[in-house]
C-alpha cells in the first residue's frame, strides 16, 4: 500500500466482510500533539481474542484462513504505524464489533502520506450501499479546531430506490466529501 488512504480502504473492506451495517470512520490530525489518528469502528461479527491475535500476525495467516478472514492488510498497517513512532490497537468483541486505531507521528520523515482520502471514502460509500457510513474529520492546528461530519443514512433515505451510483448522486457525494476534506485541511497531509 502506497499511502494511508489505501490502508483505510482495506480496513473498511474488512469491516464490510465482517457483516457490518454501520461503520464509523474518524480521522484526527493534530498538529499540536503531532499525530495523525485513524479510527474505524464497526458493528460486524467481531473477533475472539485468538482470531484478533492472528489478524495482527503476518506469519499466522494461512491461505485457507485468509480466504475467510483477514490477510496481510492489518499486519502491514500495524508495521507502517509503528515504523513512524505511532501505535496500533484493535479492540474486538464477538457479536458486537471491532474498533481499530492506527496512529502516526504527523511529522515523522517515514510517515506515508494520507493520500487520496476522497477516493477511499467515495469508493467505500457507493461500493457498499447496504452499509451506513459515518465519517468524522477533525483537525486541530494551534488553537483552531475544524471538523466535518458526514452521514450516509439520511442520504439513502432521501434517495429511496435511486442507486448511489446514479450520475448526479456520485457528483453530490464527491462534492460533499471534497468540501469536508478542504474544510479540515486534509488534502496534502
Amino acid at each position: 500500500m502506497q499511502d494511508i488512504s489505501l490502508h483505510l480502504l482495506d480496513i473498511i473492506e474488512n469491516s464490510v466482510r465482517a457483516g457490518s451495517r454501520n461503520i464509523q470512520i474518524r480521522i484526527i490530525k493534530d498538529t499540536n500533539a503531532n499525530f495523525l489518528r485513524i479510527i474505524v469502528s464497526d458493528d460486524g461479527i467481531g473477533m475472539d481474542p485468538m482470531t484478533l491475535e492472528r489478524a495482527q500476525d503476518p506469519f499466522f495467516t494461512s491461505k485457507t484462513e485468509r480466504e475467510k478472514k483477514v490477510g496481510l492488510g492489518i499486519p502491514l498497517l500495524k508495521q507502517n504505524a509503528e515504523l513512524c513512532n505511532g501505535s496500533f490497537k484493535i479492540r474486538s468483541e464477538p457479536g458486537k464489533g471491532t474498533v481499530l486505531t492506527a496512529e502516526f507521528q504527523l511529522d515523522h520523515i517515514d510517515r506515508m502520506p494520507l493520500g487520496d482520502l476522497k477516493e477511499t471514502l467515495l469508493s467505500a460509500i457507493v461500493g457498499h450501499p447496504e452499509v451506513n457510513f459515518s465519517i468524522i474529520l477533525n483537525s486541530l492546528d494551534k488553537d483552531k479546531e475544524k471538523s466535518f461530519h458526514f452521514e450516509t443514512a439520511p442520504i439513502k433515505e432521501e434517495l429511496g430506490d435511486i442507486p448511489l451510483t446514479y450520475p448526479d448522486v456520485i457528483k453530490y457525494l464527491e462534492q460533499s466529501i471534497n468540501e469536508g476534506i478542504q474544510i479540515t485541511n486534509m488534502e496534502d497531509v
Binding site: M1, L6, L9, D10, E13, G71, L72, G73, D116, E119, T120, L122, S123, V126, G127, T165, P167, I170
Partner: peptide
C-alpha cells in the same frame, strides 16, 4: 476490493468507472 486488489490499483479502477458513469 480485497487487499491484493487494492495494492494493485483497484481503487483507481473504481474511480475511473465512477467518473465515466
Amino acid at each position: 476490493m480485497g487487499t491484493s486488489g487494492i495494492a494493485m490499483g483497484a481503487r483507481d479502477v473504481m474511480k475511473t468507472f465512477l467518473e465515466e458513469i
